[in-house]
Amino acid sequence: MSLDAATVRRIARLARIRVDDTEVETLKSELNAILGYVEQLGEVNVDGIEPLSGGAQMALRQREDYVTDGEIAEKVLANAPDREQNFFAVPKVVE
């Protein structure tokens, strides 16, 4: 499987990273080199093997249902690049 320029653009759009035409070409060859390398996994027989997704092998611990957090709007907003009163602000979205 080899990436073409259109796929690189589609992936960049999905990842919300703006790329210009020269970057597309560079990325295309770099990404294809990586994909070429990982291609070797094709030779491994994984019939009947469960995927391993986590680093830890144990059951999920559950917490009690208490309110222990929040009410820190000022701290939550302190790093915001733009805010309007106690809201985060972004360019207007037209729906």
């Binding site: 939550v76 309007e84 602000a89 972004v90 207007k92 979205v93 037209v94």
Partner: peptide, 14 residues
């Protein structure tokens, strides 16, 4: 997201 609170911005309450 609220779109009618500000002329040029949408504002967000989490």
């Amino acid at each position: 997201s609220m779109h009618d609170q500000h002329a040029s911005k949408s504002v967000i309450d989490l």
